[in-house]
Amino acid sequence: MRNFIKNHPQQAALVSIDIPLISNQSVLMNIALIKQYHENMPTAKVEPIVFNALQRLNLENIAYKRNPDLNNEERFFVMLLRAVMVRNALVIIDRPFKIIPHLKNIDYIFQALKNIEDLYVNCNIYDYEWMREKYGELSK
């Protein structure tokens, strides 16, 4: 994973328990931050983009919530949306089951990834060897 990030320093977009959301900003601002900072996009322009992305995952109601008010799934999806905001994002999901521990398998995450697949270039999921069974077909 480290090598991947090293090889694509400008596109790497991490989703990890170690890369938390900014707690004093709303979900909306957490996601918008990436485009605002990297592309200097005005707030008025970036807000519709973020809302659109949230709608795709049926999460528009949490736009003004902050990190502590989110449940595990919501937190994961917000992290994912933040990652896909990176231009030509190469999304790296680091141990997703650490973020949503009660998840039975990866399908739920896959479904979400499919809903927003036009927002990123590529997605890599990294996890422990012993979590293989949770990935089902994919791991083969």
Partner: peptide, 13 residues
């Protein structure tokens, strides 16, 4: 303490 600084750095902010 919350590692939010590292999060910003991870996104090259």
């Amino acid at each position: 303490v919350n590692k939010e600084m590292s999060a910003l750095e991870a996104f090259r902010i």
